[in-house]
Design a protein around this nucleic acid. Sequence first.
DNA 1: ATTTATACCGGTATCGTTTGCGTAAAATGG
DNA 2: CCATTTTACGCAAACGATACCGGTATAAAT
Lengths: 347, 347
Amino acid sequence: MRFEAITIKDIAKALGLSTSTVSRALRDSYEISPETKEKVLLYAKENNYRPNPIALSLKEKRSSSIGVLVCEIANSFFSQAINGIESVAQEKGYNVIIVQSKEDFEKEVSSLQYLASRSVDGIIFSVSAETSDFSHVQQLHARGMNMVSFDRVVDFPDIHKVSVDNYKAAYEATTHFIKNGFTNIACIANAAYLSITKERVEGYTAALRDHNIKLDPNNIYYCLHGGLIYEEVADIMSQAMKTKQKPDAVLACSDKITTNVMRYCQQENISIPKQVALVGFSNLDLTDLLAPSLSVVSQPAYEMGRIAAELLIKQIESKRPIKDFEDVVLATELHQRASSEKRKAKP
Amino acid sequence: MRFEAITIKDIAKALGLSTSTVSRALRDSYEISPETKEKVLLYAKENNYRPNPIALSLKEKRSSSIGVLVCEIANSFFSQAINGIESVAQEKGYNVIIVQSKEDFEKEVSSLQYLASRSVDGIIFSVSAETSDFSHVQQLHARGMNMVSFDRVVDFPDIHKVSVDNYKAAYEATTHFIKNGFTNIACIANAAYLSITKERVEGYTAALRDHNIKLDPNNIYYCLHGGLIYEEVADIMSQAMKTKQKPDAVLACSDKITTNVMRYCQQENISIPKQVALVGFSNLDLTDLLAPSLSVVSQPAYEMGRIAAELLIKQIESKRPIKDFEDVVLATELHQRASSEKRKAKP
DNA sequence: ATTTATACCGGTATCGTTTGCGTAAAATGG
DNA sequence: CCATTTTACGCAAACGATACCGGTATAAAT
């Protein structure tokens, strides 16, 4: 079955005009008499005429759609970001095509290829945890695709970037731990290649250094698959809890890692924050309702999505190539809650 | 800036052939000599040729894209469902365009209009909480748009429907309350017009009846805006807690309502389940980590998305109009946790 | 009376691809 | 060696909309 819409030809035939006249009448050209315009407009309205966007795309060589690559839609951070992207896109008459990498490198490559082959006008992307080689992205970019790097940013030049101050976020979270009396702080980070991982680990180590705490490199753990699967995080936690100097606090560097750490502690009857304190990166809106209420670093996901979409669309619609590329860095928020509370008297 | 891709014309020019020959060679037509085919295929591969989907769409009168209308992306149920839809779409070569109604009727109408004007091949939709008049949907459907009704289904004929057994879900949840000794059970439902609301309220009332508990109509509350905003739920809760016979249990009939009820109880220092027990519809994957761990009715969102997408694509690709429309009803799962635990001795 | 201006509108190419039809050259048959 | 078939390719139309390039009719100016 097919959905048949009225075309400019139908109008022309019905009114005994040529297609060009109808087209001009619809676009309110000065060359068309008021009477003809009125007739055409009336007929178009009555028959609910909409210009065929596909024909327009072919002619204008643009599709009025933007692609979004994220690792997973069903993730609070990304769904909020997509929300922001979608809201801007809708305002500007673009539609949004979403693809997921599932933190898988192959799927990321094919997804980007897919977006390009669907001739999107531009792409907003956050690379997968498995991605250490960015050449597929760079190639697309070099071939002229409009792209905005987002969240997990890439560091090649001439590209807009939208991210948060991950260094500061991790620094503040770590400092918060230290101020509350925790000193043996483990850091469970995402895959090592990711920008966010590097920055967060740097913030973590800097905070330790600035507070004269010796860094134990073994206290830093990496999730090669982004902590998407529970076992990855559980293994790390069990490994960490078996070390001689058990960590007394854990900084979980992603949404999934955070919830999986919590789940692990619950299953293993590890009390938070008594045995292990926890601060996690998360954008869920009910972390305050968890047991214990969870200290989180939250990111302005919706805002990031909006900004990324605005930058991309501006670039798409720009007549000449953009020269000045922005590197937007937003602030995170640290919410201090029970999961990282200062310990009561401990001799 | 623009992303320029190679076309069939470029190949033709480069190889001194006509476009039709190239086209046929690429489609492996028997009319083309093996040598020519090889030349064309090689050149195409080397230059990474991809057929322009927009030109194809124009010719074939199909866009290979499907629209999805949900009330909100950043909602665990819908993001999981979208995940399912996207996975099927990707397999079958479709892309997914997502629009949100934000539970707003006007936005729903314009979003559907938008999808139609973007010439999607079909639409999977869940109506907004504010929608009581379905004529905009019905019109689109009558004009030949392929549509699958999903989650909040509409009841007009000749349309595929994918939903869960909401009646049974609410019946089981209510029965669970009763078995655990709760008798004055409030039901906070979504907007009254929605199919899910009707079915859930019916399941709730049936369970009461079957256990010889008199139904107090005042114990049923409706959220006109789907509980999207906190105040809507908070008002209902404060109203409920002011009644002479305070409810001892609350059945929260949507994701947002559930978390907002929890938030209200926390802010007002109402102990769950001591003062009020709670069972909520939710698809979050950390309800077991909440304080108290939350009893939930969860829906197979991913599976629902997959089925809806499969039905829709089958319908799109069907040569003749579909006669048999399916009404897929999946089962929910009731997870019994602390928030609805039986009370200890109470004289 | 001839030119010029203006108002209004049509023809046609174009975007990239597919496809029915036409046809030259090669191959086959007698 | 001629007639017929087969092979292998090109031409052109079509999808819907736009825009350049025209053209005609009427009216005004020379």
